[in-house]
Design a protein around this nucleic acid. Structure first.
Length: 263
DNA sequence: AAAGGTAGCAACCGCTCTGCA
DNA sequence: ATGCAGAGCGGTTGCTACCTT
């Protein structure tokens, strides 16, 4: 049941606009909310003069116009957080978004569907399966962590990210892929327990905040072992190798630079 | 250069949840 | 306890820009 059907006559419905928002509509909505505040979306839709449903106004504001919305690519730490939180909560997008300041549930959902599920499809692995989780845990998460470390060493003097992302993992009810402290705030520091020429052969990595640290266990892991191990079904090994080696791999997580770590 | 295919993202839809009378 | 309206959530659709042939 839609608010349109419930409250509007067919005449009103036919006047309702749909599709992409115009600049004028955006500024009308922004100005209205600036002076009247959020909430009561149906009233807002009528009073503001917008020919939109309350639902549509709410969505436009929350996903696009709200001042604290962060735009642009997800950072490695945000991607890591999404993987981590999704492993705990599943498709609870708004809950996941609540842990990533400035990111919307819609954005995270789109990211999951377009990037993560795509890779799962290519590997012929169900993205909700344990197998795919293993893939994330043993291969991509360490890479993201490494990438975070690389970023941190590149940015300013000591190891801090420019991002102000806060991972709030309180009240986790299920075991997580990573051992994450109750609250981790950047700046982080990423270190390896055992240095190596390749990220994939380190035993473990630590992400350190000022007060705490968490650990990613890579299990003396390397790509070749991973591919040959039972983690992947035999019938998709070939594709997995392609996935690992092919240039397309760089598109995963939208981190071309991430791939350079392997070289 | 043009046509077709694909990926990414904004927006919509339908359902559930919540608060209130 | 019940019904209604608003708000919120997750899934899906459709548009557009980019890529490939």
């Amino acid at each position: 049941m839609s608010s349109v059907n419930m409250s509007g006559s067919s005449e009103e419905e036919s006047e309702l606009r749909r599709g992409p928002w115009t600049f004028e509509e955006d500024s009308l909505l922004t100005h209205y909310i600036t002076s009247h505040g959020e909430g009561r979306w149906n009233v807002l839709a009528k009073s503001s003069g917008l020919k939109r449903t309350g639902k549509s106004c709410r969505l436009r504001w929350l996903n696009y116009l709200k001042p604290d919305i962060k735009r642009g690519n997800l950072t490695p730490q945000e991607q890591l957080a999404i993987l981590e939180l999704h492993s705990k909560w599943g498709n609870r997008w708004s809950k996941i978004a609540a842990e990533l300041p400035g990111r919307t549930d819609n954005e995270i959902k789109n990211y999951w569907r377009t990037r993560v599920q795509k890779q799962a499809r290519q590997l012929k692995i169900d993205c909700n399966s344990k197998r795919f989780l293993e893939t994330l845990k043993h291969f991509w998460m360490p890479r993201l962590v490494e990438k975070m470390g690389q970023n941190s060493s590149q940015s300013q003097s000591s190891s801090s990210f420019s991002s102000t992302t806060t991972l709030n993992t309180q009240n986790s009810e299920t075991p997580s892929l990573l051992t994450v402290p109750q609250q981790v705030q950047t700046p982080y520091q990423v270190t390896h327990d055992k240095s190596s020429s390749s990220i994939c052969s380190s035993d473990s990595m630590k992400i350190q905040s000022e007060n705490e640290c968490y650990h990613v266990d890579t299990g003396n892991f390397n790509v070749e072992d991973f591919i040959s191990a039972d983690i992947l079904m035999s019938d998709c090994q070939e594709e997995a190798i392609d996935w690992i080696n092919c240039e397309d791999a760089a598109t995963f997580w939208n981190v071309d630079e991430l791939w350079d770590l392997k070289k």
